[in-house]
Design a binder for these strands. Structure first.
Length: 265
DNA sequence: GCTAAATGTTGAT
DNA sequence: TCAACCTTTAGCT
């Protein structure tokens, strides 16, 4: 279940399992038979994540490009691997680990030049050291498009998905319909810093939690799923801060959630 | 057991 | 605007 934090976590886990090792690559799907052959027997040299895109370098030239989409999953484990069955797009097997990829939107072998094109298209990623938040600010501050739609565009900020969109706007009191050019510089700076913090925590925990402990029903210990978000999927439930029912509406083809009092027009 | 919806994107209409 | 991709889970019956 992938926003940017999932992909960065995966880069870390796949690196720990395979980096520097020769791996066997296989597939049970005809559509990736050629791709798997290109990877089979190569050394996993390096991993790179940008937004929701994962890149794995096999040997000197080949990059595997993976995008999990809505329900793709990459599972990493210790050998022995489970029986290979069903729509298994890619299996990697190293000395001690295996990894299975199922249901991705994209799984393809690309050249360095093709990889570079993905990076050029994607906006700054709060989880990357090289990210320049000013590039996102340039887009947002000149746009008449609603900020709730802008945040979903991967060319504006890479790695944000439907959860982080709703939650970051809530945490900064920004009404999602406000035009991008109506967002103040200080609001954007604070939101970017917050995104970095929240998404790093997401990589560490392997899931998204945006609530502060004092705003959860159980204030100690780790957040339950119920307690993880301020507004995401909480339609009609009382806002954790003011009690007003959370609203929902489709924006940028996804369900958007917000509190009309904490995020006034 | 069945159905709908889901943390996403692309390409056709 | 919508179907397709193809998996998991929540919420029904």
């Amino acid at each position: 279940m992938p926003e940017g934090h999932t992909i960065h976590r995966l880069a870390r886990d796949l690196g720990a399992a395979f980096q520097g090792e020769q791996v066997a690559a296989s597939t049970l799907m005809d559509r990736f038979a050629d791709g798997a052959r290109l990877l089979d027997g190569q050394v996993v040299e390096r991993l790179d994540a940008h937004g929701k895109h994962l890149f794995v370098r096999f040997g000197p030239e080949a990059w595997l490009h993976v995008h999990l989409g809505l329900y793709g999953k990459f599972t990493v484990g210790r050998l022995p691997a489970p029986e290979a069955k069903g729509a298994l797009r890619l299996r990697l097997v190293g000395r001690e680990h295996w990894a299975d990829l199922r249901g991705p939107t994209a799984c393809e072998v690309v050249t360095p030049a093709e990889k570079a094109r993905f990076h050029a298209r994607l906006g700054p990623d709060p989880l990357r050291k090289d990210a320049d938040p000013d590039r996102a600010w340039d887009r947002i501050s000149r746009s008449r498009v609603a900020v709730g739609a802008l945040l979903m565009q991967q060319e504006v900020v890479a790695g944000i998905g439907n959860v982080y969109r709703a939650e970051i706007l809530y945490r900064h009191g920004i009404e999602p319909h406000r035009e991008g050019r109506g967002v103040h510089r200080e609001e954007w700076d604070a939101s970017w810093d917050d995104l970095r913090t929240l998404m790093r925590a997401g990589v560490r925990a392997g899931r998204i939690v945006t609530t502060r402990p004092e705003h959860r029903s159980r204030r100690s210990g780790r957040a339950t799923r119920e307690d993880s978000f301020y507004v995401y999927r909480r339609t009609g439930l009382p806002c954790r801060l003011c009690g007003t029912p959370v609203l929902t509406e489709v924006m940028a083809a996804r369900n958007l959630y917000w509190c009309p009092v904490c995020q006034p027009r």
